[in-house]
Nucleic acid binder design. Sequence first.
DNA 1: GCTCGAAAATGAACAATGTTCAAGAAGAAT
DNA 2: ATTCTTCTTGAACATTGTTCATTTTCGAGC
Lengths: 206, 206
Amino acid sequence: MNNVQEESPRDRKKFRRRLQILEIARGIIASKGLRSLKVRDVAEAAGCSVGSVYNEFGDFDGVILTVNRETVQALTTRLAGVPAEDPLHQLHGLAATYLEFFAEHANLLRSLFEHRMEDDRPYPDDILQMVMDAFALMHPPLLRLLPDADDVKLALLSRTLFSAVHGIISLGLEERMVAVPPQMLRQQIDQFVDTQLAGLGILPVR
Amino acid sequence: MNNVQEESPRDRKKFRRRLQILEIARGIIASKGLRSLKVRDVAEAAGCSVGSVYNEFGDFDGVILTVNRETVQALTTRLAGVPAEDPLHQLHGLAATYLEFFAEHANLLRSLFEHRMEDDRPYPDDILQMVMDAFALMHPPLLRLLPDADDVKLALLSRTLFSAVHGIISLGLEERMVAVPPQMLRQQIDQFVDTQLAGLGILPVR
DNA sequence: GCTCGAAAATGAACAATGTTCAAGAAGAAT
DNA sequence: ATTCTTCTTGAACATTGTTCATTTTCGAGC
C-alpha cells in the first residue's frame, strides 16, 4: 500500500478536488478574512456538496488547519531562500522577507496565528512546531556571529528575536488608522534589528 | 439632559444589568475563550432575554468590543502603576507587568488582539488608539534615558519596543507543547530589554 | 460486458447560534 | 387613573456548521 498519491483515476480525482477545495478556501481567507469562510461557499465554488468537504477534511477546522499548514510551509520556503553569505545581511533579510510575506498575505498569517479551535481542543502541535522551526532560521546566522555563545541560549535568542519582529510587524500592519506604509515599517524593522545586534556586541555594517 | 449615569431607578437597573452582562461575558471569555462566548449563555446567566442583550449593545460584537475596551483600560491602569523613579527599572517593570497581566488574562488579551469584525467592518479606532496609548507608556522613561534623541523617533521607538515585547510574550505563552514557564519568559524578556537598551547605548544596571 | 461490493458523493435534515420584531409589560408623565 | 413612552420578552427567522441515510460511482472478479 502506497501512502502517497495513489495512481488510480479515482484517487487522482479525489486528490484534484482536495487541492481545489484548499485553493478556494485559501482565496477566501486571503481576500475576505477567516471569518468570511463558509462551508457552503467553498462547496459551491468547488462544484461539490458540503458532505464532500467533510468527507475529505473531517470538519471545517480541518480545512482551515490545512491551509494554515501550507501557509507556514510557504513562509518557510520563502525564508529559506534568503541568501546566507553574510550572517548580518541574512538576519536583516529574514526580517525583511517576513515583513514582505506578511504584507502580501496578511489574512493568511492572521489565520495562522489567530485561529482558535472549537471548545478548547489544542491547536495541532505540528503547526506550532513548524512555526517555531521557521523562527529558528535565525539560529545559524546568529551562531556565525556569536560563535562562542551557548548554543541553547542562541536557540532561545533566535526564537525571541523572531517573535519580537513578528510582534512589530503584526501590530504595525494592524493600524488601518494612519495606514503605516510598509516602507516605514521596513525602516523600523531594520533599525530594530541593528539595535538588537549592537546590544549583542555586533557592529552594524550598513 | 445628563449624559452620564442618569439617576432614575429605571436607568440604575439598566446600568446594573449592563455591568452584569459585561461581567458574565468577561468571565466566559477569560475562562473558556472568545469562541465559547454565546449570546444565549450570557442572557441566561444574566437572567434576561437575548433581546435585552441586543437592546443594550446593538449586536454581539458590541459586547465583545466593550469587554475589550475594558481590558485595555485595566491594562493601562496596571501599567501606569509601575514606579517611575528610575527609568531603567521602569522599562523593565513595564515589560514585566505586561507579562504578568498577559499570563493572568491570556484569553482576554487574545480577544483584544485577535477578534475580527463581521464582514470586513473596521475594528473601532478608539480601541486601537487605546492600545497604542498603552504602548506609548515606554515613551517617558525612554525620553529620560535619551534626552537628546528626536522626540518623534522616540515615540516610534516606544511603540516598536512594546510591540516587540508583545510578540515575545504572546508567542511565548502560546506553546502548550513544552509549556514555557512564566519564570523563563520573565528572564527572556529582561534579557531582551537589556540587550535592546545596550544597543541604544544605555548600560544595564542590574 | 455484467455483477457485485466497497467507497464516495449527495443534499436534505438537524443543530447551534446570531438577529429581528411584534406584542406585551413596566414605568413615567399628566 | 389614564396615557404615553420605553424597555423587555421570546418566539420566529437567518445563517452556518454537522450528520447520515440514500444514491451514485467505479473498480474487481468472473
